[in-house]
Design a protein around this nucleic acid. Structure first.
Length: 319
DNA sequence: AATTTCCGCAACCGCAAATTA
DNA sequence: CTAATTTGCGGTTGCGGAAAT
């Protein structure tokens, strides 16, 4: 048993950056064979390259392949990566299958250089997607925002626990988490906390994902009957499309996404005063008051590029 | 203007899974 | 079935350019 020594250990085989000539030779060889590489090990010799087969494969799959998308990642792609990573972890190749034209290496690099840092700044552990302890958080949220974050992160964790590939619920959870950071800058958040707790209970009653919690009267005013469509709620249309595209069998992530969707619908409903919940709805009214100024939220993943989010984050850094 | 430090990305490396003989 | 070989994956490194001093 054992492995034959790889040509990569041969000192005479070239390493390091590829030259234009090498690229050309590799592309021409593969194209001449109609894209059928055959054996990577035998390729270098056949193509007249002094490289190891492994190096050739990497160069082709990560750089020379004709279907590779170039340029910066869009916000939509970034959102997708974050959501998929929350459910899959560092399964870069699996994540890459969900992003057309992007390679696992590219996504991994983008994660390590951009997204990871962004999450850290937001006080979110990029490995677990859960809130970091205060002493490990790279900035200091004010007390209210800090108190709210666990609520949203609880959601993210619940969605992640499904272990499914679909991203809807996690996207919504991240949306909510960010929303909460904003709302947290307001003073009185009792209503918000009540509503979140009730929403979790709603999720519990319809899917059994999050155990325990809550008082019946809190659940009452969050029944699906009270939900309304709010097309201008951030990301709503994106989520609807994602869920429509989800054809995976079984439970799901679709269900989770739907429930998460309902929560956001609820938030939006309260905010727009379109809904009058039964019973004691003063918490909802209060919640609406907090949300109302937020209805024109800019793109939620443009945390650094967008001045709206940047100002909010800067505020929290100062505190 | 020169030097140092930081950062992003392409490429490498070792391991494990998959495939082949 | 087993060993040998190939392929794929994820972590890590190091080069080169940009930013800071």
């Amino acid at each position: 048993m054992g492995r034959s020594p790889c040509c990569c250990h041969d000192a005479s085989v070239k390493k390091g950056p590829w030259t234009e000539e090498e690229d050309k030779a590799l592309v021409e060889y593969i194209q001449k064979r109609g894209g059928n590489v055959g054996s990577w090990r035998g390729l270098p010799k056949a193509a007249g390259l002094n490289r190891c087969g492994k190096s050739c494969r990497l160069r082709w799959t990560n750089y020379l392949r004709p279907d590779i998308k170039r340029g910066n990642f869009s916000d939509e792609e970034e959102r997708l990566i974050i959501s998929l990573h929350a459910g899959l972890g560092n399964k870069w190749s699996t994540i890459a299958t969900h992003l057309e034209g992007r390679t696992d290496n590219e996504i991994k690099n983008y994660w390590n250089t951009h997204i990871r840092k962004k999450l850290m700044r937001m006080g979110v552990d990029p490995v677990t997607h859960q809130q970091l302890p205060p002493d490990q958080t790279s900035h200091h949220l004010n007390g209210t925002a800090a108190a709210l974050l666990p609520e949203a992160l609880h959601w993210a964790a619940a969605a992640a626990s499904l272990g499914s590939l679909d991203t809807g619920a996690l996207m919504q959870a991240l949306l909510l988490q960010q929303l909460l950071q904003v709302i947290g800058s307001n003073n009185d958040t009792t209503g918000l906390i009540n509503n979140l707790a009730a929403a979790k209970a709603m999720q519990n009653s319809s899917g059994g994902i999050v155990p325990n919690i809550l008082l019946q009267d809190q659940i009452n005013y969050l029944q699906p009957g009270y939900l309304c469509n709010t097309p201008n709620f951030p990301e709503q249309h994106v989520m609807q499309q994602k869920m429509t595209n989800d054809t995976s069998p079984g439970m799901s992530s679709f269900t989770a996404a739907e429930m998460a969707d309902q929560l956001c619908n609820t938030a939006a409903s309260f905010a727009s005063h379109d809904v009058a919940p039964a019973g004691d709805w003063s918490p909802a009214r209060e919640f609406a008051g907090l949300l109302e100024p937020m209805m024109d939220l800019p793109d939620l993943c443009s945390l650094e590029s967008d001045s709206f989010w940047k100002d909010i984050l800067d505020d929290s850094y100062r505190l």
